[in-house]
Each structure stands twice: as structure tokens, then as C-alpha cells.
């Protein structure tokens, strides 16, 4: 009752950010991808079908090296897929776009820019920074770092840096937030804190989220749907829908049961 396995990707917008205006529907259809390695072709993704409903929070779980990051890069538009189509609200994704922002495992802040300038990156790249300066301050506020605007990245802790990376993504008002193990390198306490922050940011902003994680518990805590991949070449093995209301609690009695498919 609490968690339900679904046989087919048939997502419907559920819960808080239902039909959010600023959210995208992502449709991945029959996507295969691979790389040319010296030892021959390396198949990474095999016929992946995945739908993300507007405002939905989807987590991807799978063994290391199976191709999750590769899938995210394709969705972001950083690389074209070898086969299959990926669409955003019905339009094929051919190149990166500020409506789909990636937060990588490393914060990858630009060390030569202050925190403020790092967050301003997207607006500057789009040439709208002059008119939209307040959005930078607002994004810094959202992650609670308004006091560190003038600091340089080397003066931040790991958790703060990851928060800046989050602010740098949010300032673009993305319709899809792509998170590639964004909390992977944080200590467990900071991690828990950031997970709650992520949920509340998602609830407030209403974008769709595609999250890769290694941490089953994290997936269960955050996502409405968990998609599980096979080892390389990655295929979708199964999906688990988690229908627990937000804000969730780690000590919910059902937690262990959610890990297995009920």
C-alpha cells in the first residue's frame, strides 16, 4: 500500500507539485548508447524507456558503471544518443538548454569566481544578468548562503560548495533538475540535512527531478518513483513507486519494507 511496484513506466503526476507550471515532461524512448573504446565498442545503454511526468521526482538506482551518468548526459543534451529519441515536452532534445540543469557529483564551482559570481553563471551566459541580479541573491537565500556571497570556493566546506552548486542550478528556474549523485561526497549528517533541503526546494519550485544515487535509502526518502537499472549495458529492471507523503521521516515504520518490492 505504501510502496507499489509498477510494471510499466506509466507515471502520473502525484503529490505536492502536481501539474506545476514550471515543470517539464521528459520522455526517453528506445534509447541506446555506447562508446568506442580501444578494445571495441562499449555498449552502455540498451533500449531504455523512461518517462518523467511534470513535477515528478524520479530516482535512478543501479550498479556502478552501468550507464546512469551517461543517460543523464543524454537527457541534458550534452551528447546525442546513438539510437532512440529523448523529448522535452514533445520537442526533441538536441543540445543543452538552461531549462534542464545538471548538478554533478563534484560541485565543479569555478574557483576563480566568488560564490555570487558562480551562482550568476547561468544568467550571465544567457546575457540576462544585468536585469536579473536579484535572482542570484534569491537563489543564494534559498540554500542559506547569502552570507558567503563574496567568498571563494576554496573557502567553503564540501556541503556549502554543493549548496552553491544547487543555487547555481536553481537560479536558472529549471523545468528539469538533473542530479548526478549530488550528495555522494558529503558526510552522512550533511547528507541528511541536504536531502531534506532538496525535498523542500523541489516542493517550493515544482520542477521535475531526475536523480542518480547509489544510496537506496536516499532514493526512498526523496523520490516518488525509483527506477532500477541492470549492470552494463543498462536496461531498466524494475520500477518502484513510493506513495508516502512528504515530508517523509527516516524512522517511518514502513521504511524497511519499502526497500523490497511490496
Amino acid at each position: 500500500m505504501v510502496a507499489a511496484a509498477v510494471e510499466k513506466p506509466r507515471p502520473e503526476p502525484i503529490e505536492p507539485s502536481t501539474a506545476a507550471p514550471g515543470a517539464s515532461r521528459i520522455r526517453v524512448e528506445g534509447v541506446s548508447h555506447g562508446f568506442d573504446a580501444p578494445s571495441g565498442r562499449l555498449e552502455v545503454l540498451e533500449n531504455v524507456d523512461l518517462d518523467v511526468a511534470p513535477g515528478e521526482f524520479v530516482a535512478l538506482l543501479g550498479p556502478s558503471g552501468c550507464g546512469k551518468s551517461t543517460l543523464l548526459r543524454l537527457v541534458a543534451g550534452l551528447e546525442p544518443a546513438a539510437a532512440g529519441t529523448i523529448t522535452q515536452d514533445g520537442n526533441p532534445i538536441t543540445r543543452p538548454d538552461p531549462s534542464r540543469i545538471v548538478v554533478f557529483q563534484d560541485p565543479t564551482l569555478f574557483p576563480w569566481r566568488t560564490v555570487w559570481d558562480n551562482v550568476a553563471l547561468g544568467l550571465q551566459a544567457q546575457g540576462i544578468l544585468k536585469q536579473e541580479k536579484t535572482r542570484v541573491d534569491a537563489a543564494l537565500c534559498k540554500v542559506g548562503l547569502e552570507g558567503f556571497a563574496r567568498s571563494y570556493p576554496h573557502q567553503l566546506s564540501g556541503g556549502m560548495a554543493q549548496r552553491v552548486a544547487l543555487a547555481r542550478a536553481l537560479v536558472n528556474n529549471p523545468r528539469l533538475l538533473i542530479l548526478d549523485e549530488p550528495l555522494g561526497k558529503l558526510d552522512s549528517l550533511t547528507r541528511l540535512e541536504m536531502q531534506s533541503e532538496l525535498v523542500s526546494l523541489w516542493q517550493k519550485n515544482g520542477f521535475s527531478v531526475l536523480l542518480v544515487t547509489h544510496d537506496v535509502e536516499e532514493a526512498l526518502f526523496l523520490a516518488q518513483r525509483v527506477v532500477i537499472f541492470s549492470p552494463r549495458p543498462a536496461k531498466i529492471v524494475t520500477e518502484v513507486r513510493i506513495e508516502r507523503p512528504y515530508p517523509r521521516h527516516r524512522d517511518d515504520p514502513c521504511s524497511p519494507a519499502c526497500g523490497t518490492k511490496c
Binding site: G77, P96, F104, F110, W112, L121, G122, A125
Partner: peptide
């Protein structure tokens, strides 16, 4: 230059010009 810097800038809509003058050059300074 860390290739991830380019990825970050590109997903945010950076042009080629931006990638050279605002990413490559400062990183190489």
C-alpha cells in the same frame, strides 16, 4: 581545463564565446 567546467557552462546556455573567454581563459590564467 577541467572538462566538467565546460559541461556546467554549456547546460546553462553558454555560447562558444563564453566558453573561451569566461571558462577557458580564466581557468588557464
Amino acid at each position: 581545463v577541467n572538462k566538467a567546467y565546460y559541461d556546467v557552462a554549456r547546460t546553462m546556455g553558454a555560447s562558444e564565446w563564453f566558453l573561451i573567454f569566461r571558462v577557458a581563459i580564466p581557468a588557464a590564467l
